[in-house]
């Protein structure tokens, strides 16, 4: 027979509630204690890795490539970000290189499909949505993208003057894009970034960059008013009084 707890009215209920509360308190305490221990360990690892990186700095060339690579992967697995000292010894981690190769493989076609250029935020979205598990952090993605060019892969990272970062295919030509955009501006009389985005089926950010690039080539000029920033054919250079 299951033991029946004696119930002594309201007092009994209160007591069992208190009991429950004590139990949760305890498990929370235990959890935090474990966390503290874990953090203590990590702290040791951090200080050790700092000493090692200081040692590497002192002795510069004495350490083989392999050792720095291994050291870097230790740092990576700890989640310590120490790029300044790390970057001095190795362009980036092996992990990033592999990731870059993978990115090039899965993104080459999609980048072509959207017209040779994809904003990094869109890349982040696509890659992580496709992965499902083992997601990439924004930093990992960026670091991997930085490796695309040195590895001479078919897509490269590009940073516009505005700070917008995109992946573009190696075959992409700014000049050709500027030509195409300036033709479109001529056909329409003038365009804004939003209008260009709609007609080309690209994002507004990229449309804006295309217009600025066309302007940089001297093939467009701007009209900045309260209505919008519009781009016109560059009559200043094309039309002689």
């Amino acid at each position: 027979l299951p033991a029946i707890k004696p119930r002594t009215g309201i007092i009994g209920i209160e007591r069992s509630l208190q009991e429950q509360q004590r139990a949760t308190d305890e498990s929370i305490n235990v959890a935090f204690q474990d966390l503290k221990k874990l953090m203590g360990m990590a702290k040791d690892m951090v200080s050790i890795s700092k000493t090692i990186s200081a040692k590497i700095r002192e002795r510069q060339g004495d350490i083989t490539e392999d050792e720095t690579v291994r050291f870097k992967s230790y740092l990576m697995s700890l989640g310590i970000d120490d790029p300044v000292t790390r970057d001095a010894y190795k362009s980036s981690n092996e992990y990033f290189k592999q990731l870059a190769r993978q990115l090039a493989e899965i993104l080459e076609e999609p980048v072509k499909e959207v017209g040779g250029m994809m904003a990094l935020t869109d890349v982040y979205c696509r890659v992580n949505r496709a992965r499902g598990l083992e997601l990439l952090s924004p930093e990992d993605l960026l670091n991997a993208c930085r490796q695309l060019a040195p590895l001479s892969l078919p897509i490269v990272l590009r940073i516009f003057d505005s700070g917008v970062m995109v992946l573009q295919s190696r075959a992409h030509s700014d000049y050709e894009v500027a030509e195409a955009v300036s033709q479109l501006i001529k056909d329409r009389g003038s365009v804004t970034a939003t209008e260009l985005a709609q007609s080309e089926g690209i994002s507004v950010v990229l449309a804006c960059e295309r217009l600025l690039m066309t302007e940089k080539y001297g093939k467009a000029c701007r009209d900045d008013s309260i209505e919008a920033l519009r781009f016109y054919p560059n009559l200043f250079l094309e039309q002689e009084t």
Binding site: C221, R222, D223, D224, R230, Y232, N234, L235, T241
Partner: peptide, 21 residues
């Protein structure tokens, strides 16, 4: 002049050569 009715005439152009004109 024709520039007077061309809206970009009223925005300082960032492109150096264009701005000179």
């Amino acid at each position: 002049p024709w520039q007077y009715s061309f809206p970009p005439f009223f925005t300082l152009q960032p492109h150096a050569e264009t701005r000179a004109k």
